[in-house]
């Protein structure tokens, strides 16, 4: 039931912008709790990588006195990966195309992360 509700949030997020290719909610241990991924994406890999990056982001923010981590953004030649805390126990991972307008996507992703945090 809860997974379906989270999936519904992810579905709304993905359909809100053509530039969002996929999204997933992952536990801090890297377990994928719910996902809307493309067929060629490995759920386990997305989960493990997102959780590891968020952990390092958390640590970096602390070590460099940047306060509580808000989000991590990775930019590659094919696009972006956004990682946002969804409450204290999960991370929202959003995979975005390279030409995307990030402002709106950040806004939508933050809203989705808050909605997911309320469901967990």
């Amino acid at each position: 039931m809860r997974e379906e509700m989270i999936k519904s949030v992810l579905s709304d997020l993905n359909s809100g912008s053509a530039d969002i290719e996929a999204s997933a909610v992952i536990s801090l241990d890297g377990l994928t709790m719910a996902s809307m991924l493309q067929a060629n994406m490995d759920e386990d890999r997305v989960g493990a990588m997102a959780a590891a990056m968020l952990s390092l982001g958390d640590r970096t923010a602390i070590e460099l006195a940047r306060g509580a981590l808000d989000q991590v953004m990775i930019k590659g030649s094919n696009g972006y990966v956004l990682l946002i805390h969804a409450g204290s126990e999960a991370v929202l991972s959003v995979i975005v195309r390279d030409k995307a307008k990030l402002g709106l996507i950040f806004l939508d992703a933050t809203r989705a992360a808050n909605a997911i945090a309320n469901l967990l």
Binding site: L31, A48, A52, S55
Partner: peptide
């Protein structure tokens, strides 16, 4: 580094796959 043993095992398994 904030990486739990469970996450570490997941990362190792991902590499193997």
């Amino acid at each position: 580094l904030g990486i739990s043993q469970t996450l570490l095992v997941r990362l190792q398994t991902t590499g193997k796959k």
